[in-house]
């Protein structure tokens, strides 16, 4: 008995997986976009207000055509494929509401609400999109992110992003020795063990 306990023939200890570092971007909490909320465009390194060109060169009325200017803009906004649905034809430093009256550039939610009613309603209740700050506004300030801090207005689908790495916990261990995409790597019930010989074995959990 004493010999057994001292020799410890059941040395099947669960090894501690090596530490995996978490890159800085994985814990970055800044919003995904940083819009200027100002009517500006940068041409050849110089910043202009929209009206500085558009007062001189009026746009053609029809916008469903190949762009000759602003060609970096990729318009992927569903059936909303006309510039003047959102941009104000008369005042180029503003957006346009349903009657063509200006909406200031720094209030994009008012513009988006023209079409996205339910989302706007939820947003005004802090339910759509992120709200930074305090849950209790008597204890601290809170700030609701504007539409364009997450969505590109010209291609508004939330952009796909790289996922931070998955868990590397004791139970899961290293599963890299399985070819990626096989059923085994997807089994969350895998148990990781190390035999006394040091060889890694991954067992299926017994039924």
């Amino acid at each position: 008995m004493a010999g057994l306990l001292l020799a410890d023939p059941w040395q099947e200890a669960v090894p501690i997986p090596p530490k995996t570092d978490v890159p800085v971007w994985a814990t970055d909490t800044t919003p995904v976009r940083h819009p200027t909320l100002k009517p500006e465009t940068v041409i050849a390194g110089m910043t202009f207000r929209c009206s500085e060109c558009h007062d001189l060169f009026p746009s053609p009325p029809e916008t469903d055509r190949a762009l000759t200017q602003h060609r970096h803009i990729v318009l992927d906004h569903g059936i909303n494929a006309r510039c003047f649905n959102c941009h104000n034809r008369q005042d180029r430093n503003a957006f346009a509401d349903d009657r063509g009256d200006p909406i200031p550039f720094d209030q994009p939610p008012v513009l988006c609400a023209k079409c996205h009613g339910p989302v706007y309603r939820d947003w005004t209740h802090d339910v759509h999109g992120r709200t930074d700050g305090y849950w209790n506004d008597s204890l601290g300030s809170r700030r609701r992110l504007k539409c364009v801090e997450c969505h590109d207005p010209h291609a508004p689908a939330f952009q796909a992003m790289r996922p931070a790495r998955g868990p590397n916990t004791l139970r899961m261990g290293d599963q890299t020795h399985h070819p990626a995409g096989t059923e085994k790597t997807k089994n969350p019930l895998l148990i990781y063990r190390q035999t006394p010989s040091g060889r890694d074995v991954t067992h299926e959990r017994p039924e």
């Binding site: 992120r130 930074d132 849950w135 204890l139 992003m161």
Partner: peptide, 16 residues
Amino acid sequence: TRVGRMPACVEACPTG
């Protein structure tokens, strides 16, 4: 949260 702030996971979520 007991001093009014949001949990860390809420603050980090990019989609809200």
